[in-house]
């Protein structure tokens, strides 16, 4: 019955917009009437930012197969540039966000072009190094506060911005993956040499994925900065990159739904463990190890959660993921 509605392409788009609008209004209503208090709102914010980070890193690590450990660096660029634009130059939030994204994308381009020739662990070290270089440079720029960072950033990130950010990130990356570019990107992951023989310029596709990933990391940075009041270089160190990597691998490399689920899982787990200050990190570590042992391909493997699979789960054929 429902499938019939979806069969019509326009009907489907309409239904999607309807559902998105419903979710948006639903949460907005809860926030307005106060069912979601400040604590819940902070968790929702972290959750959305982590989703953007995980989905964008998944494009680089999961779909393109390039091990990048510098995602926090791009987030930092986005955060700092957007704050400079809004707080120091008085530009509107949207301009700040877009500026931050573009700056992060530019950083991604500058870093990606030389380093993406490297493979595997050598690329990992190079990206990790660049992430740290970005952080050290920020630490030494007096204009943005050095190690103390920028304090008193006006709170502009609202549920609406976060929601839009998540939807745009996922929609862009999903559509990219399903386009001919996406097929080329995935072919690079599967077999670089074969792709090259097929006439795919592997370097330019790697750089494309890297730049788009960096762009959205910048978006996450801009949203983060305008919610959490203070940014400082330490926030964006290599351990932050690892956190994002954990979400991507936990979700399943090359699965956008997986990245979303894992980002949500890690955020909520971290929040739930706050009540156990003494052992939170031990429990977190154990969960991480156990999940990887029992599900090394990640929660979703490289599959996506979709209506079809849900239907299969529903009818008892549990071969979905």
């Amino acid at each position: 019955m429902i499938m019939n509605v979806f069969a019509n392409r326009w009907g489907k788009l309409g239904a999607e917009i309807l559902i998105l609008a419903f979710i948006f209004l639903f949460v907005q209503y809860f926030i307005t009437v106060g069912v979601f208090n400040q604590y819940h709102q902070i968790i929702i914010t972290s959750l959305c930012i982590n989703i953007i980070l995980a989905v964008s890193l998944n494009l680089i690590n999961g779909f393109t197969g390039q091990l990048s450990l510098g995602h926090a660096g791009f987030m930092a660029v986005g955060a700092y540039v957007s704050v400079v634009l809004t707080k120091f130059m008085g530009m509107p939030f949207l301009v700040g966000l877009v500026g931050g994204c573009l700056a992060a994308a530019a950083a991604g381009f500058v870093i990606g072009v030389p380093t993406l020739r490297l493979k595997g662990d050598y690329l990992a070290i190079a990206t990790l190094g660049f992430g740290e270089i970005i952080r050290v440079i920020l630490q030494n720029i007096e204009y943005v506060g050095g190690p103390a960072g920028i304090v008193g950033i006006p709170k502009m990130t609202t549920w609406g911005w976060l929601f839009a950010g998540v939807v745009i990130t996922i929609a862009t990356i999903q559509n990219l993956i399903n386009s001919s570019y996406g097929r080329a990107i995935i072919s690079v992951r599967e077999d670089e040499i074969a792709s090259e023989v097929m006439g795919i310029n592997i370097t330019s596709y790697k750089v494309l994925a890297f730049v788009i990933g960096a762009f959205f990391a910048g978006l996450a940075g801009g949203l983060y900065a305008h919610y959490f009041y203070i940014i400082k270089p330490e926030t964006f160190n290599f351990l932050k990159s690892f956190d994002v990597l954990v979400m991507v691998v936990l979700g399943g490399l090359g699965s956008t739904t997986g990245a979303v689920i894992a980002a949500a899982f890690i955020t909520l787990l971290s929040a739930a463990l706050q009540a156990f200050p003494a052992i939170r990190m031990i429990i977190y570590a154990l969960i991480l190890i156990l999940l990887m042992i029992y599900r090394p391909q990640g929660l979703m493997g490289n599959k996506e959660l979709s209506v079809k699979i849900l239907g299969k789960i529903w009818s008892g054929k549990n071969d979905a993921a």
Binding site: A15, L20, I23, V27, L47, Q174, T257, A264, L305, S306
Partner: peptide, 20 residues
Amino acid sequence: VSRKVVWLVLLLFAFGMVAG
């Protein structure tokens, strides 16, 4: 916007609700 997008956004909020 693909159907998957809708589903995963839905899922995200299912999680959100649970958290809440």
